Simulated assay, not measured.
Amino acid sequence: MLIYMIRHGQTDWNAEGRLQGQKDIGLNDTGRAQARHNGETLRTLLADQVEAFDFVASPLSRTRETMQIARTAIGLDPLAYRTDERLVELSFGDWEGHTLDEIRALAPERLKERSRQKWNFIPPGVDAESYEILSWRVAAFLQAVEQPTVCVSHGGVIRSVLKLVGGWNELDAARCDIHQDRVLIIERDHGRVEWL
Results as ranks from 00 to 15, higher is better:
residue 89 E to F: 01
residue 100 L to R: 12
residue 65 E to Y: 00
residue 6 I to T: 09
residue 173 A to T: 12
residue 81 Y to Q: 00
residue 24 D to S: 05
residue 169 N to F: 01
residue 20 Q to Y: 08
residue 4 Y to F: 14
residue 190 H to V: 08
residue 114 R to Y: 12
residue 189 D to S: 14
residue 48 D to Y: 09
residue 118 K to P: 03
residue 110 R to P: 01
residue 41 T to L: 13
residue 73 A to T: 08
residue 40 E to C: 02
residue 109 E to L: 14
residue 140 A to Q: 14
residue 134 L to N: 03
residue 188 R to K: 15
residue 16 E to F: 02
residue 179 H to V: 00
residue 3 I to Q: 02
residue 34 Q to R: 13
residue 132 E to M: 12
residue 77 D to R: 03
residue 195 W to T: 06
residue 130 S to H: 10
residue 54 D to W: 00
residue 64 R to D: 01
residue 120 N to Y: 08
residue 91 S to L: 06
residue 119 W to K: 02
residue 43 R to H: 13
residue 167 G to K: 04
residue 160 S to V: 07
residue 77 D to S: 07
residue 176 C to V: 15
residue 124 P to V: 09
residue 182 R to Q: 15
residue 112 K to Q: 14
residue 97 G to F: 14
residue 124 P to D: 08
residue 40 E to K: 10
residue 53 F to L: 02
residue 155 G to L: 04
residue 47 A to R: 11
residue 96 E to P: 11
residue 154 H to V: 03
residue 17 G to A: 07
residue 97 G to V: 06
residue 26 G to Q: 11
residue 161 V to K: 01
residue 116 R to N: 14
residue 86 R to Q: 05
residue 39 G to V: 05
residue 164 L to W: 05
residue 187 E to N: 15
residue 184 L to C: 14
residue 108 P to E: 15
residue 71 R to H: 02
residue 29 D to A: 15
residue 119 W to L: 05
residue 88 V to K: 13
residue 74 I to C: 12
residue 121 F to I: 04
residue 61 S to K: 14
residue 78 P to E: 12
residue 145 V to L: 02
residue 57 A to K: 02
residue 42 L to E: 00
residue 59 P to A: 08
residue 170 E to V: 06
residue 10 Q to H: 12
residue 34 Q to S: 09
residue 155 G to V: 04
residue 38 N to W: 07
residue 77 D to I: 03
residue 95 W to A: 08
residue 148 P to R: 01
residue 163 K to A: 11
residue 146 E to H: 13
residue 101 D to R: 11
residue 17 G to T: 12
residue 27 L to T: 03
residue 98 H to S: 13
residue 71 R to P: 03
residue 176 C to Q: 13
residue 107 A to Y: 10
residue 118 K to W: 11
residue 132 E to A: 15
residue 25 I to P: 02
residue 184 L to I: 09
residue 159 R to E: 10
residue 172 D to G: 06
residue 84 D to S: 00
residue 158 I to S: 01
